[in-house]
Computed example of a mutant assay.
Amino acid sequence: MMSTPGLLSVFRRTALAFALVTGGMPASAQESTNQSTDQSADQSATQIAGNQAVGEVVLIPSRVIYPGETINLAALKKVTLIVGKHKPEAVATRAEELDGKVAKRTLLPGRYIPSIAIREAWLVEQGASVQVFFIAGGLTISATAVTLQPGAAGDLVKVRNIDSGKILSGTVMADGTIQVSAS
C-alpha cells in the first residue's frame, strides 16, 4: 500500500489542530462555563489529578540559611507546586513547621527543607548555669548545675552538680530548668 505525502501532511495538520483545540490548555485553566455540556471532562480532570498536590503552596528558602541559624519567615518564600509535581514525604513546607526552628545544615535557596535538617531552638546551652530540681511526692530538692550539652524542651541532657561534681541526667523543662529523677 502506498501513501501519498500530501494526504499524510493533511492528516497531521488535522490531528495537530484537534489536539490544540481539545487539550491545549492546562488542566487548571479548563474551567467549564457551561456545566451541563462539559461535566464528563471536569470529572476526568479530577480523576486524573487524583491524590496529587495540585496547587499546593509550600515554603522554601529564598536565600542560603547556614547551620545554627534560626529560620524566620523572611528567609522563606511561598511557591505553588505545578500539576504533577509531588512534594517529598520527609520535608518541612509549612510556616508552623519552620518558624523559629534552627538549621542543622546548610539550606539552599529553591530546595525543599528536609525535616532532619532542622531542630528546635536550644533552651539551655552547653556550659550554662541552670537550676536542677528533684521532685518526689511532696519533697523538692533544688541545686545549681552546669549543662554538659545543649537541649530543647523535652530533651534528656547531662548536667554536673556544682557542689558535689556529680553528673546527672535530666529533662529540660519549658522554663529552662532541668528535672532529674531517682536512678
Rank of each mutant, 00 (worst) to 15 (best):
S36K: 06
A53M: 01
A17H: 05
I116C: 00
K101G: 02
L20P: 00
T4M: 11
F133T: 04
A90G: 10
L108F: 06
P88S: 08
G6E: 13
A174P: 15
G50P: 01
I116H: 07
A41H: 10
A92Q: 07
E56H: 14
G165C: 12
L20Y: 09
E125D: 09
I71H: 02
G151Q: 08
A27C: 03
V180H: 00
T37H: 12
G24F: 06
P88Y: 08
V172F: 03
Q47Y: 08
A182T: 06
L98D: 08
S164E: 07
R13L: 05
D163W: 04
T70P: 08
L16I: 13
D38N: 10
R13C: 04
T106Y: 00
E97L: 03
G127I: 04
Q52Y: 03
E56I: 10
P5L: 11
Q30K: 15
S3C: 04
V21T: 13
A117Y: 05
T22G: 05
Q35E: 04
Y112M: 02
E120K: 15
V58T: 12
I82T: 06
E120Y: 07
Q39V: 03
D163P: 00
G165R: 13
S169M: 06
R160D: 00
N161Q: 08
D99V: 06
A153H: 14
R160S: 07
S164M: 07
E89V: 04
I141N: 05
T46N: 11
D38F: 08
A15D: 01
S62D: 12
Q47H: 06
P67Y: 12
A75M: 15
I167M: 01
V132I: 08
S142L: 03
P5M: 10
V132W: 02
A75T: 14
V124F: 03
G137H: 05
P88C: 07
F134G: 02
R12M: 11
A41E: 04
L123Y: 07
Q149R: 05
T33P: 15
H86P: 00
G68M: 09
V54H: 03
I65E: 05
A143F: 03
G50F: 09
A136P: 00
L59R: 09
I65G: 01
T171E: 12
S115C: 06
S44I: 07
A45M: 13
A92G: 14
I178Q: 00
V10D: 07
E56Q: 15
S32E: 14
L168S: 01
G23H: 12
F133Q: 02
G176Q: 05
S40A: 08
T22I: 11
N51E: 10
K77I: 14
T177L: 03
V57D: 02
T177W: 01
G100V: 11
A15N: 06
D163L: 13
V146A: 05
I167Q: 11
I135H: 04
Q35W: 02
S32H: 09
Y112D: 01
R12W: 06
F18P: 00
A15S: 10
T4S: 10
R111V: 01
I141S: 05
S62N: 13
